[in-house]
Design a protein around this nucleic acid. Structure first.
Length: 153
DNA sequence: GCCAACGTTGGC
DNA sequence: GCCAACGTTGGC
């Protein structure tokens, strides 16, 4: 099983939104970066777990955990001219963008902020902490995953 | 294939 | 709202 980190802007779609949906499940649409897409399409598998990260907000950080419940399939928002994620270069025949389905698993008792994550030597290699990082889907090493969870108690 | 211009991300 | 960092686009 692999571990991941998924970024989302809470003003657009936060963990509260996911939690309150039927089955607490939603498709993870709008990924428009090739590297992020490749992770999702080629490596993400059912039952993988992912940190839910809130970005572009007052306190950016990890707020909970989701699990992957459906593997990559074409991102239909790319086909919709009315969608903010519309991409005329993506077609049903040759979809360019993909999404997975995620299900809410856990909300942390507190946000593990980006500032806090930066403090730990154990996490210095996380792609999240690399300067100028903009990936919205990225892998998390198993030892980093467990280290972060150990911060909660 | 180079690279300048442009658009986006996301912390601050 | 600013702006650094980065990805993409398109002229050549």
């Amino acid at each position: 099983m692999k571990y991941w980190l998924l970024k989302s802007e809470p003003e657009v779609f936060g963990i509260e939104n996911l939690k309150n949906l039927p089955n607490a499940t939603e498709h993870w649409d709008g990924v428009r970066n090739y590297q992020a897409r490749n992770f999702m399409r080629d490596e993400m598998r059912c039952d993988d777990q992912a940190f839910f990260y809130h970005s572009n907000c007052k306190v950016p950080g990890i707020v909970g955990i989701v699990e992957i419940v459906r593997e990559a399939y074409p991102d239909f928002t790319a086909f919709d001219p009315d969608s903010a994620y519309y991409d005329p270069k993506s077609s049903h025949d040759k979809p360019r963008w993909f999404m997975v389905d995620v299900r809410f698993k856990r909300e942390f008792s507190r946000t593990i902020s980006l500032n806090e994550l930066k403090e730990y030597a154990e996490l210095q290699e996380m792609p999240l902490l690399r300067r100028g990082n903009r990936l919205s889907v990225m892998p998390v090493a198993s030892d980093q995953w467990h280290f972060i969870l150990s911060l909660l108690d």
